[in-house]
Write a protein that binds this DNA or RNA. Structure first.
Lengths: 239, 239
DNA sequence: GTACTACTGACAGATTCCGTCAGGAGACCC
DNA sequence: GGGTCTCCTGACGGAATCTGTCAGTAGTAC
């Protein structure tokens, strides 16, 4: 491996190994001597990377040489932290964790002064009420949407009567308090909305509706906008 | 200039010169032959950069080698899009715009297939109620927190009586429906909460409380946690 | 003091790199 | 078809860079 290729790999190792990273650890991975690793680190520093070395501990990449020049402003950071905090509060467990992970990953790409803005953001989120546990497995529902797979749902309509239906799930809408599933009903060739808490059960089916989700969703949203509002009267499973 | 250093410079040139960039243009900047530029391009390709060359036109960097391999997962993208959509719906205009800008910037750092996930995210946000326009200039209030500057506020207490106070603004809390200011009152040496809508006016003062905001906020939050709850009874400006 | 790391300089041999030259190919225009 | 402008590739001899080893220094934590 040439030195030039190796320098890119060093940057890669900094990104995927937990900090601090010792020269010995890198030497082992790269198949070179520790002295060469010291030289590589120096070359990266000359090239602009901010790499800090702590005796007895190892190296930390504190500013990525490859950062795009356009970074986030303080206000954009506020929006990001606030938004991901909201998701952590009201999302299902997997989504909540993903919000936390996303914030960590984005934070890692920022220079230290911006990281400080993230840690000390002004906007905080507090909820008096613990969000209700969704009646269905939200991860499986999201997966159905992503994979564009039909689902068989069991739900209670507005009269409380149990009903079943096969639908193509298009999107999950986060309302003020409730979650709503937007779906396409192939039986009736129409769009339908279901409040998630009215769905008692659903199962993933083999039937795929790929690649129609994006187009169908676009059409549905256009229809909703033509009606100007998602009226309360229509935020229930329709008969 | 060593080759390894030069490769980083080539990446830099790709970022700041308008595409397409010819080998001749790079050779001139780098002080090497065109043949060497061809070699450098090849080395970057081997290292993972996606660089496309069009005869008669020049090179275009279509995917930056420096993208962290650990990029956002689809679920993390869902969290991000959902969170920033929430902020766009309930934030003040400047914050709302910043959410949009942040999403655009982060999107630009992602490879094309991840960009598609962003554009076709499953989670959507809808609000039946338009959020009330805050009674105060939220940008100025955020600025006061960032700059750690005292503010003079005029507010109505729970009896509706007009009152005034000088406080150190620490944070803005986004509750279910309302916004709340967490502040430190130096006159009474105590922490105070003010629902933003009860604040009729505020002015920025010259007095700086830097660098105390982070520590004070941490102490206040610890105190709130000790009390286990931000009780409804205390979510009004206190007398 | 010990252990664990980062850090630096010097040297001889090894390896990579460079410019030049030659030739090929695609896209666009006249 | 020819001309222009670029990307593209291989080969060669000389130049430049790089490497591992060895020796020594220094900081931090226990």
């Amino acid at each position: 491996m040439s030195k030039s290729a190796r320098l890119f790999r060093v940057m890669h190792l900094f990104r995927c190994l937990p900090a601090p990273v010792t020269a010995a650890r890198m030497a082992e991975d790269l198949g070179v001597s520790e002295r060469t690793v010291y030289r590589d680190i120096e070359s990266l520093r000359v090239a602009g990377a901010r790499i800090e070395g702590e005796s007895g501990l190892g190296y930390t990449l504190s500013e990525d040489i490859a950062l795009p020049p356009q970074t986030l402003s303080q206000l954009e950071i506020e929006a990001l932290v606030l938004g991901l905090s909201e998701v952590q509060h009201r999302g299902d467990p997997a989504l909540s964790q993903a919000a936390s992970d996303a914030l960590a990953k984005i934070t890692a790409t920022l220079p230290e002064d911006k990281q400080r803005h993230i840690h000390h953001a002004v906007g905080l989120v507090h909820r008096y009420q613990t969000p209700a546990v969704p009646s269905v497995d939200m991860s499986a529902l999201r997966e159905a949407c992503w994979q564009e797979r039909a689902i068989h749902i069991t739900y209670r309509d507005r009269a409380g009567v149990r009903s079943e239906r096969v639908v193509w799930p298009l999107a999950i809408v986060y309302l003020d308090r409730e979650l709503m599933l937007l779906a396409s009903c192939q039986l009736r060739q129409a769009f339908r909305q279901f409040i998630i808490s009215s769905i008692t059960d659903f199962t993933l089916m083999d039937q795929s509706f790929r690649p129609h989700r994006v187009r169908l969703l676009r059409d549905y949203i256009a229809e909703l906008k033509t009606r100007h509002v998602v009226a309360p009267a229509s935020d229930r499973p329709s008969l």
